[in-house]
Amino acid sequence: MNIFRLAGDLSHLAAIIVLLLKIWKTRSCAGISGKSQILFALVFTTRYLDLFTNFISPYNTVMKMIYLGCAYATVYLIYMKFKATYDGNHDTFRAEFLVVPVGGLAFLVNHEFSPLEILWTFSIYLESVAILPQLFMISKTGEAETITTHYLFALGMYRALYLINWIWRYYFENFFDLIAIVAGCVQTILYCDFFYLYITKVLQGKKLSLPA
């Protein structure tokens, strides 16, 4: 474990908690893409199948359980408890256009052709594009609540910190996983224009609004 990976995990955890609290406190999921949250729940489910069979450390197990629990709780709040506030008219990104190609790619490009490895690879590829419905929704509504932008910033930073972690592990631990690195680069690049807007607008105290 290195500082970049720990910072990345904490940033990821912060994002997940911020989103859950935002929905719970405001009792509203306005501006939140339920499709992205379903994709994230799918990412954690397919990645943590070895949660009970492959013990790595208490930290690893606890964090996986928190991620899984919060992901499903968020989906529950969006589609069940606060369904009335779900903005389905703007959450129209065709998620199947992500899941099907990612599923095919996981079959073709992986480290080992075994069920667990293919599902892990699927989760890595899916995570890199899972935010697209959310970013698409913001581009459609033309704006985002400030708390939502903080959620997105923390979520985007988590994988950017992981990229630094992989550089660190490459030099100090001779560790190298091309699939995770390439997917992580794609994932972080997708946030770039949001990062630009976040830094130039939200951090200047303005509301994030896109030229509609």
Binding site: M63, F176, D177
Partner: peptide, 10 residues
């Protein structure tokens, strides 16, 4: 570098 599946990561 040897490729290692990054299973110790979240």
């Amino acid at each position: 570098e040897k490729e290692m599946p990054s299973k110790d990561e979240l």
